[in-house]
Design a protein around this nucleic acid. Structure first.
Lengths: 249, 249
DNA sequence: TAAAAATACGCAAAATATTGCAACTATAAT
DNA sequence: ATTATAGTTGCAATATTTTGCGTATTTTTA
């Protein structure tokens, strides 16, 4: 029994029953509880399900209002957002992906600025409701409950028809050698399309995400024009990014 | 029974009934009162419900950061929504316009139902995040800050490519002689496109909107298949609609 | 005010998690 | 072949979480 095979079966069980017990899975798949635990941990980290004491449950089932509360490292993200909006100029067309950091960017966008803003993120779009002078275009598509953005063919097709001046690419993992990576395949496709649709790519990342990596590659590190962290641009942790000819903010 | 699972069930009960008793929950979930009490405490601390002596009550309405102020005639709208979801069946493709009544419909859609749901409404989409078994397609376009739905060419073009079984058409004004009318030109265009995209049109309307009219016409009254109000279908106020061969619910 | 109901607190048993470790497997390089 | 390497799996010892019960306290109700 291959690991991937188990993962598929586990996810399927979760999809069908909304929840699974570790003991049931161990029996069903005829492996030890430890193995199942490790599987669940991987799937949890990949945001494919939610690990809970005794088993796992399907994502998103009842997490209404998990949306605004407990944002991890909020202060860092706000700090990053403040730096990010310095890049904005009147008349630009911008593209905002999803992610909590980008929501903070959206919040801070000066309402007076005359911008056209494309986004596939529900949370970003909600922030833009408060800014009547900014034209917001929501990129339609299949709604991914987990990430709260639209994905899939329709969304990617829409992206292929636009050209933005600057894209703020919410970043899951960034690594000076492996580039930008992500766990969720559909989001990878979206981000690739966003990169194609933009002249300039900005990666706002909390420093904690530097030098981590995930399963799927989105782009090379050289494809990023500007990296924004909460750190001072001269910080030693950023040296290897500076060496790759990326602007730091 | 997993703890998280209980939490989901409790939240669901609260959402549906607005209040729950600890004793009922203990019996329903077959655990001790202490366990329920602890669950309620956790959910209370997480601000998902409000703990009260003897049970718990709903927080009112989702404190999503968002732009949801007090909703007018909420009770009527919830009543309408309860009737509306009776029209849903497994396998359907539905189309939900914006409006507070439709948000109530979205909230009440049973999460187990297997539906494909198209919508241009941010608020509806947010509700659908709680329902992982329902495939939601967000119709992209220019975001109208006021109505919190997408409008314009892109959205209408997307609508022209779909065919839904049933459309819940949020109604601004409805009138037995003048049909359905609306104030905002762009929303008129959206609703016309939605009507074209659906086999069956349902108008959920609080009775107060009956026999009002606005500047622009969306469709004739005969184009509506089902009218849902908070009134009893036999109510005299609905007689002239019944005469036009519209089903009442 | 007194009885009834609901709650809070601490405890202990049971279930579940975590961690380090050793055995085993697969793969690629030598 | 075989050696090295990384990845996977099961086990055991230890830590943590969950749960129900008894009891004392508080709140509600009549």
């Amino acid at each position: 029994m291959l690991k991937e095979e188990r993962h598929q079966i586990i996810l399927n069980e979760v999809r069908i029953h909304n929840r699974v017990l570790l003991t049931n899975l161990a029996e069903l798949l005829d492996v030890s509880l430890d193995t199942i635990r490790r599987d669940i941990k991987v799937l949890h980290d990949a945001k494919k399900l939610k690990k809970v004491h005794g088993g796992a449950i399907s994502l998103g089932f009842n997490n209404y209002n998990a949306v605004v509360h407990d944002i991890y490292a909020l202060d860092s993200k706000k700090h990053i957002a403040k730096k990010a909006i310095q890049l904005l100029k009147d008349g630009q067309v911008i593209l905002l992906s999803g992610g909590t950091t980008n929501v903070e960017v959206a919040k801070l966008i000066p309402p007076r600025l005359q911008l056209t803003c494309f986004t596939p993120s529900l949370q970003v779009a909600i922030q833009m409701l408060n800014k009547p002078h900014i034209e917001t275009i929501f990129i339609g598509g299949k709604l991914s409950n987990n990430s709260q953005i639209t994905v899939g063919g329709l969304a990617i097709n829409t992206l292929s028809q636009i050209k933005a001046d600057i894209c703020f690419l919410g970043t899951n993992s960034i690594n000076s050698s492996e580039g930008i990576t992500e766990f969720d395949w559909e989001i990878v496709q979206m981000k690739k399309a966003m990169i194609k649709a933009s002249k300039k790519i900005v990666s706002p990342s909390i420093s904690e995400k530097l030098n981590s990596s995930k399963r799927y590659k989105i782009c090379e590190i050289e494809d990023i024009d500007i990296l924004i962290t909460e750190l001072n641009p001269t910080d030693v942790k950023l040296k290897e990014f500076a060496n790759k000819n990326i602007s730091l903010l």
